[in-house]
Amino acid sequence: MLARGVSRSSVIQSLKVMLIPGRYGLERWSYVLQRVSGVVVSLYFIAHVLETGNFVGGITVWSVPDYSFAERAYEETVKLLKNPIFDAGLAVVGFLVALHTINGIRLVLAHFGFSLGRPRRPEPFSPPPSFSSKQRALFWLSISLAVFALLYTLDSLMKVFRP
């Protein structure tokens, strides 16, 4: 249900603007990745809490069930989740968590004015001071570490890099 004055087309338009980086450059890609990773990681967190909550009786947690119940719930969950699709999904979550964390630190630094250039007279063909080389290096560092997290998760779950 939409709020008064908000049309379906305006919501779709807003989502398109938010999710499509277009030709605005690296900082816009960072914005899109940060938003998408934030939403996905939040949804994963909720699913994770619900899933692990089953071991202790779900919403009836305050009357703790016996150990055999938790053991059975754990075995069933492991059986359900132990397949390549969930493993690949977890690897993507690993990528997004690392990216959101490290890129988030970069953004906090920028919000406090650190790692940005100083105001200077505009010069033709030179990037604005806010697109400083430090900022861009930090962004690529966050991408690199996120890719490392992806590969590490894949290796931990599916042993893809082991003989």
Partner: peptide
């Protein structure tokens, strides 16, 4: 959110 599109255009 520091998307930087303002400065880019």
């Amino acid at each position: 959110h520091f998307a930087g599109s303002c400065s880019a255009v």
